[in-house]
Each structure stands twice: as structure tokens, then as C-alpha cells.
Design a protein around this nucleic acid. Structure first.
Lengths: 219, 219
DNA sequence: GTTAATTAACTAACCAGTCAGTTATATATG
DNA sequence: CATATATAACTGACTGGTTAGTTAATTAAC
């Protein structure tokens, strides 16, 4: 009786491994947090032994950095090219960004990264600094630019852009954190479509100049 | 030559200790996160040995719970009595809450608790559930009630209270997280007064019905 | 057969929690 | 008031378990 050749205990996948390992690491870090995640678990999820993990990434901290960089850099570049190529009103542009962001929150689990950064900012000032410089500062510039231009051309009320940008971002941040923290406790989860509608509605009627504010602008 | 009696190596402070230990624990947990905090460090900050710490709290997890409970319960009760005793418009009440909250964010370091909860929700479902039930649900009810009443009496635009409450809370949450995460990286820190002004301005003009919305409400 | 990829067993460090012993303070006694 | 005794508060060295990181042996692949 011819025995079928036994399946090999493992396969060489040196090209696919890095991404597989990053995926497993992201998943585990987001679920458990940095400190409570152990390298054996990440390796196990990637279907690999711990030694292999160390073959591709020199340590736990470096692995975290790789995860963060890899997850964010693509989206950042994309947002920036989109902004520079826009036509139409600034309100439309803003709405588009918020919509796209919300859509991605609800689908991918890259949305776990901000929570991870927050949680570990004290222990990884280097990562926090990276996130501050590369993500937050860019987002700030993107939005304050839109606000300033919109105000200049009379589309928006004259708010303080250096503070107002946070009001725009805040619901997005809250949404992300909610999804990865309290979603499990809610019987019926957050409806991101309604969430977005509500935000756009409230945001617009706080920004749009055509509504004739009540006695505030007295030029 | 009369030798001055040597200062005692330690003093008995059985009544003050519990609070001192909680303070040190809050500070350390907020700064480092739960897992990266070690009991020796907390004891050291409280000026005490690790053994003493275990005399007052049975373990690390229990210490965290004690910190959270102790920090929140007082403020919660206060908010609720305030709400039930209000007179004046609902907009004033809302503004008062936001102002009071913002003022406390900028002063105390209880504001580190939400960050702590977020970071450890995965590892301490029990604490996350406690926070969800006792803090979030109460805040939600408080705000949605105000919104509903305000809408009913025509003071506010007819927004969706079940989602709009998050838009109100979001900037507060962002402020808290910012303070404990990115404040160190900013040359000039967040000005919480301007922050509040900006929020109230944008919030009001998204909520106040007298502004005659642009073609949305078609009764 | 050679080599690169992978494994699994190992080491070294760290830390939560314990406990036998020490010291400050309160109380009793003369 | 001085001194002895009792006890509550506190210390710090130790233990057991966990885990980041290493390495010698093994296996797939060409």
C-alpha cells in the first residue's frame, strides 16, 4: 500500500513571512496591548516558531515599530495626494475625508493602532514622537489648511483653526477607541453610517457661514 | 556631646497610608500603564516598602480597581445631583458641565483614568465593564436627557440624541488623552480655556435651533 | 550535497507576591 | 515621669513563575 508522502512540517516562505508576521503582531498587540503580548503568541498566530520571528525582526520593540510604520505610511501618503488634487468646495473635501476615514475605521483593524500608541506612549516615547510628527502633525496641517481656506473664501464661519481642527478629529478618535474598547459591551454595535451622518450634520451647522450667526459677527 | 536622637527609619501612618498608596499608584499606572508598572516602584514613590503595599491592598489588580473606583465615584455622584437641581436653559446646563469637566481635566490627574481604562480594557474586562456601566452609561443618560428636553422645548435643533451625545463628549475625551500623551511633545501646551471656548462655539452653532437650518427640517 | 529556513530546548532577567524578622508607637506599671 | 511590655506597622530578602531573546540541531528545497 503506497503511503502518501507526509506533509512537510513547515515550508519556506521567506517572501511572504514578513507580512504574515506583521499581521499577526498587529492583531495581537491590538487585542492584548504591548506588554501583555508575548512573542510566542505572535509566532503561534503566524503559524511559526518564536525563533523564526526573531529571524525577521530583531526584537519586540522593533516589531511594534514596524507594525506601526507599515500600517500608517500608506494611508498618510494617500490622504496627502488626495488633498492636493481636490476640486470643489472645502466643505465637500472635509466631508469626503471624514467619510473615508469612518469607512476604514469600520472595516480594517488598523484602527487599533491609535489605541496602542496611546497606551504605550509613556513606555515608548520614540514611537509616540514618531506618531506625533508623522501622523498628528500632518493631519493637523491638512485640516487647518482646509479650514483657513474655507474661512478665507467665506465658506466657513471664522473659527480658530488651531483649536477647531481638534473638534473635527475628536469624533473620529472617539469612534476608533470605542470600537476597540466598548463595542463588546454594547448589545447593538455602533452604526458608523449614522455616526457619520450625525457628525456631519452637527459639524456643518457649526461651521457654515450662510446660516447667519446670531449677533456674533458684528463687522 | 549630646547626640541628637537619630531620625526614625520610618513612621507609622496607618490612617494616611491608603490614600498615599492610591496616589502613588494612580500616578505610576497613568505614566507607565498597568503591565509596565511594578509594585516596587509604586511603593518607592509612596516612600514605603513593597511589603507595606501588600498590607493595604491584596494585589496589583485589586490596587488598580481601588484606584479607579476611588477616583471616579465622588465626581459621578456630584454630577448627578447637579443635573437634577438645575434651573435655567438646557444650553446653560450643558455649557456648565463642559466647563466644569474641562477645568478639572486641566488641574487634577484623575484625568489619566480614561486612558488607563482604554489601555487595559482587553486585559481587565471587569474594569472595563465597571467603567462602561457606572461612568459611560450615566454620562450618556445625563447628556441624552438634556438633549431630548432641549429639543422638545425648541431650544436645540432636532439632532439624534443617541449619537449626538458622543459628539459632545468627544472633544473632552480627546482633551484628556492629549494631556496625558502628547502634551510633552508640544512646545506650548494646550490652552484649555481656548479649547473650551472653541468647543462651545462650534457646538452651539450646531445645536441652537434659532439659526434657521438650511432646508433640512421639512415638517 | 549544500544551504537557507525553521524548530525547540535553553538561559538569563525580571517581577508579583510571601514571610520571618525588625522597629516605632501605644499602653501598662511602679 | 521613667521604664517595661505588647502590638501594629513596616522592611527587605527570597521564591516561583513567566517570558524576551539565543542557539544547536533539524528539515525543506534546489
Amino acid at each position: 500500500m503506497p503511503t502518501t508522502p507526509p506533509a512537510p512540517r513547515w515550508r519556506r516562505r521567506s517572501d511572504a513571512r514578513p507580512q504574515e508576521l506583521l499581521d499577526a503582531a498587529l492583531e495581537t498587540f491590538v487585542e492584548r496591548g504591548y506588554a501583555a503580548t508575548n512573542m510566542d503568541e505572535i509566532a503561534r498566530r503566524a503559524g511559526v516558531s518564536k525563533g523564526t520571528l526573531y529571524l525577521y525582526y530583531p526584537g519586540k520593540a522593533e516589531l511594534l515599530k514596524a507594525v506601526v510604520r507599515q500600517s500608517l505610511l500608506g494611508n498618510l501618503a494617500e490622504a496627502q495626494t488626495l488633498a492636493s488634487a481636490h476640486s470643489g468646495t472645502f466643505r465637500e473635501l472635509l466631508n469626503y475625508f471624514l467619510g473615508e476615514f469612518t469607512r476604514r475605521i469600520s472595516r480594517t483593524n488598523i484602527s487599533g493602532i491609535p489605541k496602542l500608541i496611546l497606551a504605550e506612549s509613556g513606555n515608548f516615547p520614540e514611537i509616540a514622537q514618531f506618531y506625533f510628527d508623522e501622523v498628528i502633525q500632518r493631519a493637523r496641517k491638512l485640516i487647518t489648511d482646509i479650514l483657513r481656506q474655507g474661512i478665507a473664501c467665506g465658506e466657513f464661519r471664522p473659527v480658530d483653526p488651531d483649536y477647531a481642527w481638534r473638534m473635527i478629529v475628536a469624533p473620529l478618535v472617539l469612534g476608533v477607541l470605542w470600537k476597540h474598547t466598548f463595542q463588546p459591551f454594547e448589545p447593538d454595535g455602533l452604526d458608523f453610517d449614522r455616526y457619520l451622518d450625525c457628525q456631519l450634520d452637527m459639524l456643518a451647522h457649526g461651521l457654515v457661514a450662510s446660516e447667519v450667526p446670531v449677533g456674533r459677527n458684528t463687522p
